[in-house]
């Protein structure tokens, strides 16, 4: 039984917006990445998984329980870190996590202290949330999600806006948690986090599933096709964009170094480059002329 099963899920809001369209994939365990640009439908999918929203069509099962028909059972097994979580500034770190623990039926202070230690917030337990840095607030947020050791942890953009040190710390917390036999679903638009943490991922674009499978397989699809073209100026870049997919452009000294996707080998003289997950992701997110639906045939 997969930890999370998503079958033909669609979500249409009352105003007609289609946030998700026929999404299907499974998550067996470990840390699973959900990539997509802003407005791709990641948060909607997170909310459907955590039973806050009901899908318009399709089913979602978490630990074998249907999120619509057995929501109570699902909620017992998940921890959720929403994208925007400011918390109560007047409560201390301990008080807030203890409050959330109480709502989950956990009245053991030691359990609260244990999760605070896990996220390295124990020394700040008596500090008011309003006086914490952004990174510390996120760690407090993840602490309340971890209390009770839920089987599935759903984290929506947990590292957005964090400095590199905090992001590394966060990754360590999430990977340690997944190693204990639990499942972490990490929704983000930061490709580096997915590359560091996730063996498998799904890519959403405009509410549709663009890819579901391993990071390695996605990178394999663009392997050998990524090249670097050196240009003199903007005019060259504009001309290049008309010929092929430009993944990124870096302004270096007097020129521009452009990473391109050379599918048709039209640039044999260009410098080959090792494909990264970011290249593959940017390629997925490219315009209609370049994007193609890359679906793992096993899904």
């Amino acid at each position: 039984m997969a930890a999370i099963e998503i079958h033909h899920v669609s979500k249409r809001y009352q105003n007609g917006t289609v946030a998700l369209e026929d999404i299907s994939f499974c998550i067996d365990g470990g840390v699973f990445g959900l990539l997509g640009h802003n407005g791709a439908g990641k948060t909607t999918l997170m909310k459907a998984l955590t039973t806050i929203l009901a899908p318009s069509a399709g089913t979602i099962r978490v630990c074998g329980f249907d999120t619509v028909k057995q929501g109570k059972e699902v909620r017992r097994r998940i921890g959720y870190l929403p994208q925007e979580l400011a918390m109560y500034p007047s409560l201390t770190v301990f008080d807030f996590v203890n409050y959330m623990a109480g709502l989950k039926g956990i009245h053991d202070k030691n359990a609260v202290y244990a999760v605070l230690e896990q996220v390295e917030m124990l020394p700040f337990a008596d500090r008011k949330i309003g006086r914490l840095s952004g990174g510390m607030r996120r760690r407090t947020g993840i602490a309340q999600a971890l209390v009770g050791s839920p089987q599935v942890l759903v984290a929506d953009e947990p590292t957005a806006g964090l400095d590199p040190e905090e992001r590394v710390r966060f990754r360590s917390v999430l990977s340690r948690y997944a190693r204990e036999g639990r499942t972490v679903l990490l929704s983000t638009h930061i490709v580096e986090d997915v590359y560091q943490l996730c063996g498998e991922l799904a890519v959403l674009r405009e509410g549709r599933l663009f890819y579901a499978g391993t990071s390695a397989a996605l990178m394999e699809r663009v392997a050998g096709k990524v090249k670097i073209v050196r240009l003199d100026g903007e005019d060259g870049l504009v001309a290049l964009q008309k010929q092929t997919a430009v993944l990124s452009a870096a302004y270096e000294g007097h020129g521009i170094s452009a990473r391109i996707m050379d599918e048709n080998m039209a640039f044999p003289q260009a410098e080959p480059a090792a494909a990264t997950l970011e290249d593959a992701y940017v390629y997925c997110m490219g315009g209609k002329a370049y994007g193609q639906r890359l679906i793992n045939p096993s899904v």
């Binding site: 017992r76 929403p82 925007e84 400011a86 918390m87 709502l103 989950k104 039926g105």
Partner: peptide, 13 residues
């Protein structure tokens, strides 16, 4: 505003 409601809705309350 603080996102706490989403947290509470995702729990058993």
């Amino acid at each position: 505003k603080t996102g706490v409601k989403a947290l509470i809705m995702a729990g058993p309350t």
